[in-house]
Computed example of a mutant assay.
Amino acid sequence: MRGSVNQDWQSASIRITLGGLSLLPDLERYYESSIPDAIAVAIWFTGTTKKSHAYITVIAGFIILDHDNGFESMIAKPPFLDLDSHRKGIALSQRHYALQLLEDSGYSACKPTVVPMDPKISLTATEGELLPDITHYRWLVGKLLYLTLSCLDITFAVHKLTQFLAQPRLPHLKAVHHLLHYLKNSPGQGLLFSSNSSLQLKAFSDADWGSCPDSRRSVTGFCIFIRDFLVSWKAKKQTTISRSSVEAEYRALSSTASELIWLQQLLQDFQVTADSPTLLYCDNQAAIHIASNPTFYECAKHIEIDCYFVHERVASGVLKLLPIRSQYQLADLFSKPLPSTQFFSLLSKMVTSHLEGEY
């Protein structure tokens, strides 16, 4: 990779803090060092509160990646992150945080499970006995939210469980306990950041049509890679009901395209040029045809704005849509619960790490 961080960063009115500690002195010391070609990657966690719909962002730190000099370091790290530097890059996980959660919840000696959520169980908002005390459920889900910072494999399960915070029921609590059993199996699961590959931006987009039994809304799932490491992923219920699987897939494409455009602009701010065009993989041929051919818009007027938004990026060469077989669709991890065979098949195709240790 050839690129440098924008040297005009000091002129911007930006103050980034972590637990009251300003990160700017650390960045300033970095810029004063003689490292000419590098990229600073900010890691953050964003969540929402259901009542106020307020966005909460926690800056987790900065990883400095230098392809030419092999320099990799973390200049700011909160206590709930674990780092392991080796020849392949930096392994980022929350192993100690996960182990502490298991101990605090009384599941440190539980029997491990192989998947974070049982695909045979469908959770609804009305079935099951209401919990007499919802505090414990909310406490567990709140703790699990922080684990999604590095544990991409539990993202969908946590997304599903957060939908029942208002009135959790016994099946929901059992699903949380099942997830804790999964954490016992792989507390050190995390991400691997490597600087030994080309700077290619690529994404996988998917939707699970009408999968919510309470509202029949679809679930959008996507994951985005820079180089070979994962930098952005999401599991989110769509805001409207889709009348066809094509419509659900196209809404997911639009959300993924928006995230890609934002990441492209972020790289430009760092004066880093990514390989063009950005690759966007989708396993729905009809959605790809609509994005590539304006003549299909007549049968998709109900999603016309999304159609034009994606088509404009495809026509300009910013995005390139490519088909992919469903068994290779990595975004399936973020849109639905999967059986163990498919779950581990997709997880193994992502550049992930596992910090070992006694537990």
Rank of each mutant, 00 (worst) to 15 (best):
I224H: 01
T162I: 09
T135Y: 03
D208N: 09
L130E: 15
K234V: 07
K202R: 12
L253V: 03
F193T: 09
L165M: 15
I241M: 11
H172R: 04
N196I: 13
H172F: 04
R216L: 03
G188R: 03
L144R: 08
F229M: 10
V246D: 13
L199E: 10
D153R: 00
T239K: 12
K234C: 08
L201K: 03
A175W: 04
F204Q: 04
C212R: 04
Y137A: 08
L253K: 01
D228P: 05
R169T: 01
V231F: 07
Q167K: 12
L173W: 00
L199M: 12
T240R: 05
Y182K: 01
I241E: 11
L147V: 02
V231C: 05
L192V: 13
T220M: 00
G188I: 00
W139M: 14
Q167D: 10
K236E: 02
L165W: 11
H177N: 08
S195H: 08
S242Q: 10
L180M: 09
F225H: 15
D228W: 00
S197A: 10
T148M: 04
R217V: 09
H178N: 06
K143R: 13
K234I: 04
T155Y: 14
A175N: 04
T220R: 00
L199W: 11
R227P: 13
H178Q: 06
G210L: 04
L131C: 06
L144K: 10
R227I: 09
S255T: 13
L145N: 14
L140F: 14
F229C: 08
C223M: 04
D208K: 10
E129V: 12
S232I: 06
W139T: 14
R251F: 09
H159L: 15
L131R: 02
C223S: 06
V141W: 05
L179N: 05
G210E: 01
S194L: 05
I134P: 15
Q238W: 12
Q189A: 10
S198G: 14
E249N: 11
F229W: 15
L179V: 06
F225I: 12
P213V: 00
L201S: 04
Q189S: 10
S254F: 13
S198E: 15
S254N: 12
S215R: 02
T256P: 13
Q189F: 04
E249F: 13
I224F: 06
V158R: 10
E247L: 07
D214A: 00
T155P: 12
P168T: 07
S194I: 06
H172N: 00
F156N: 07
I154S: 00
R138Q: 10
S195W: 02
R169A: 03
F222T: 02
A166E: 12
F225E: 14
L191Y: 07
L179S: 02
P187V: 01
S255R: 14
K160F: 15
S218D: 03
L161D: 08
T239P: 15
P213C: 02
L230K: 09
K202H: 13
L147N: 05
P187G: 05
H181R: 13
Y137R: 07
S195P: 09
A248Q: 06
L192A: 13
A203T: 01
F222I: 00
T220D: 05
F204A: 06
L147H: 04
L147F: 00
K184L: 09
P187N: 07
K236H: 05
L147I: 01
R243D: 15
H136Q: 15
T220L: 00
L179Q: 06
S242A: 11
